[in-house]
């Protein structure tokens, strides 16, 4: 009998036992590697969508897996609640102000949750606490306040995609505000609206009519001005012919008068030093005269003043009195 037939039981037994040992080794290795018996702490986070979020998704910190997603559920207030389990060895890294960033791949494969630790020293965040999502209002506020360690672990496309909901929310807000503004404007211009703005808008028609008539009048004036301008422009025109000689004569006189004034001004400007000296001398003469008069008035010999001069009567006074 052939060897393998004779010892078939032993060979098959070895074949089976070896396979079972290998399976057991696999399971033990998995248990050690995945730390099945290690204590885990649960946290939760809230996202706007479950896209890219699946149970078993890795939660990593600086490239190392520190936990995984336990469950993803839609709550009654339409937010996506993600429950995480963080291994006991990494619990110290879950500090206050920590933020979770969903890293997705444009190809639809890979991805995970990245933990960005808060810039706070102290006790770790208690289990069952909320870790804000990267794009949530609270996460954005924490980041803008500089309370989050934002190590660049993801690629730029992911970061842009993360920012996209915030941008879209802002655009949505702006659009909503614009829509409300338009609705208010529509209400203002409605026929039954009251208030200063509706009155103004309602009077706009009348104002427009008046403005239109004013413009028509202005247009006719402009039309009349046009031939006048043409006539003025032409040297042989009627206007130039009517007012031309008198105008030239008047302008010639004005020109001569201006020349005289200019000469007088030049003379006055040239005689100013002599006039000034003459004025100084006159003032000195007046002061001397004043002193002489003062001395004469104080002289006892001639006290009593100077007799007033009598004007001799004229020989012929005329036919009429002077007052006439």
């Amino acid at each position: 009998m052939r060897f393998r037939i004779r010892f078939s039981n032993q060979i098959v037994g070895l074949f089976v036992v070896t396979a079972l040992v290998l399976v057991a080794a696999f399971i033990v290795a998995l248990g050690i590697n995945q730390r099945w018996f290690e204590q885990k702490h649960e946290y939760y986070s809230e996202f706007t969508t479950a896209r890219g979020l699946t149970p078993g998704l890795a939660v990593s910190f600086r490239g190392f897996q520190i936990g995984q997603v336990r469950s993803v559920a839609l709550t009654e207030d339409d937010t996506v609640r993600v429950t995480l389990s963080i291994s006991d060895r990494h619990i110290d890294r879950i500090t206050e102000h920590s933020v979770l960033q969903l890293q997705t791949n444009p190809l639809g494969i890979g991805g995970g949750l990245l933990l960005h630790r808060g810039r706070v020293d102290g006790e770790p965040l208690p289990p069952e606490s909320l870790i804000p999502a990267w794009g949530s209002p609270r996460g954005v506020a924490l980041r803008q306040a500089g309370l989050v360690e934002t190590a660049a672990e993801g690629d730029i496309i992911n970061e842009l995609l993360e920012e996209l909901p915030v941008i879209l929310a802002n655009v949505n807000h702006a659009t909503t505000t614009g829509t409300q503004l338009l609705e208010q404007l529509q209400q203002m211009v409605a026929a039954d609206a009251t208030g200063p703005v509706p009155d103004l808008i309602r009077n706009a028609d009348q104002m427009t009519v008046e403005l239109r008539s004013l413009l028509a009048l202005t247009g006719s004036l402009a039309e009349n001005l046009r031939p006048l301008t043409e006539e003025l422009r032409r040297p042989e025109g009627a206007v130039v012919r009517l007012v031309g000689p008198e105008l030239d004569e008047a302008l010639e006189k004005i020109n001569r008068t201006l020349g005289h004034i200019e000469e007088l001004s030049g003379f006055a400007a040239g005689s100013t030093p002599q006039i000034r000296a003459l004025l100084y001398e006159s003032r000195d003469a007046l002061e001397t005269g004043h002193a002489v008069l003062h001395g004469i008035r104080n002289n006892p010999l001639i006290r009593g003043g100077i007799q007033p001069r009598e004007t001799p009567a004229a020989g012929f006074e005329g036919y009429r009195p002077e007052e006439f």
């Binding site: 393998r4 037939i5 078939s8 039981n9 060979i11 098959v12 074949f15 089976v16």
Partner: peptide
Amino acid sequence: TLQILFTGV
């Protein structure tokens, strides 16, 4: 046993 021997081993 023989079947496992022929098929598996």
